[in-house]
Nucleic acid binder design. Structure first.
Length: 224
DNA sequence: TGCCAGGCCGGGT
DNA sequence: ACCCGGCATGGC
C-alpha cells in the first residue's frame, strides 16, 4: 500500500462506487454478437441514440447480417445508416468488415473468438476503420474476451481525478487499467460501461456538473 | 444556435 | 512518433 493510495482513489474503489451509485449497466445492448460488432463500428465518435436508429433501420430492412451487408449497394447502405453520422465512411467500413468477417471466419463468432486474443486483436486492427477502441470493444463485448476498453470518457475522468496526466497513449492507458484490476471479463465489461454512464451524466467536456457525481467534484479533493 | 457525442484515417512535420 | 483536418447526423 503506497502513499499514492491514500490520496488517489484505487480503480477498484472507483468501480465499487460507480456500481453502487449507478447499478449494473448490462452492456452491450444488442441481440447478437454481430450486432455488437456493427454497433461498435457505428458508434465511433457518435451519440449512441443515433446508432440505435441506424441499427433499427438495418434490422427493419433485414440488412443486419454479414451476408446482407457484404452485398448491399453502397447508396442503400448509406441511406440505412445515415443517422449514425459519417455515413459514407461508415458504410464502407461496415461493408469491408462484413466481407472480411465472411471470408476469414465464415461469419461465425465461434470460429473468430477461438483464435488467441492478441492475434485476433492484430487482425481486427488491420481492418480499415477499426482502431484500438473499436477492436477492444468487439473483443470484450461481442467476444467476451478479457480485454480492457479505453475511451474518451475514461481518459477525461481519470485526468480530472488526477490518476493520469492526460497525454498518455491508448496502449499506455490500457496497461494502466489492466495492471490495476483483476483479469475478469465481467469486471472489464461493467467498469467501462460504468465510466461511460457516469461520464455522460457528470463528466461532459463542457458543463460537467460534478456536484452530483458519485466520484466527487473536480478538482478531486482526495479520499480519506 | 453552436457544441458535442462510446474514433479513425491519411498526410504532413 | 506525434499533430491535424476531415468525416456528418441528431439532441440539447
Amino acid at each position: 500500500m503506497d502513499d499514492v493510495d491514500l490520496v488517489i482513489p484505487s480503480l477498484r474503489r472507483i468501480y465499487q462506487r460507480l456500481l453502487r451509485a449507478l447499478g449494473p449497466q448490462q452492456w452491450w445492448p444488442a441481440k447478437s454478437s454481430f450486432e455488437v460488432m456493427v454497433g461498435a463500428l457505428l458508434t465511433q465518435n457518435t451519440a449512441w441514440s443515433n446508432v440505435e436508429q441506424a441499427i433499427g433501420q438495418l434490422t427493419r430492412a433485414r440488412a443486419l447480417s454479414p451476408k446482407a451487408l457484404a452485398r448491399a449497394r453502397p447508396t442503400r447502405l448509406q441511406r440505412l445508416i445515415r443517422s449514425s453520422g459519417y455515413f459514407r465512411q461508415k458504410a464502407a467500413v461496415v461493408q469491408g468488415f462484413s466481407r472480411w468477417y465472411l471470408s476469414r471466419y465464415r461469419g461465425s463468432p465461434r470460429m473468430m473468438f477461438r483464435v488467441p486474443l492478441e492475434t485476433l486483436r492484430r487482425e481486427l486492427l488491420a481492418v480499415k476503420g477499426i482502431g484500438p477502441e473499436t477492436a477492444d470493444s468487439i473483443l470484450l463485448y461481442a467476444g467476451r474476451q478479457p480485454i480492457v476498453v479505453i475511451d474518451a470518457y475514461t481518459r477525461r475522468i481519470f485526468r480530472r481525478h488526477h490518476l493520469i496526466e492526460g497525454g498518455e497513449s491508448y496502449d499506455q492507458l490500457q496497461r494502466f487499467v489492466t495492471q490495476r484490476l483483476p483479469r475478469d471479463v465481467q469486471l472489464y465489461n461493467e467498469f467501462h460501461a460504468l465510466l461511460v454512464a457516469v461520464g455522460k451524466r457528470y463528466c461532459r467536456r463542457r458543463d460537467p456538473h460534478c456536484a452530483a457525481c458519485p466520484l466527487g467534484v473536480f478538482p478531486h479533493q482526495g479520499e480519506r
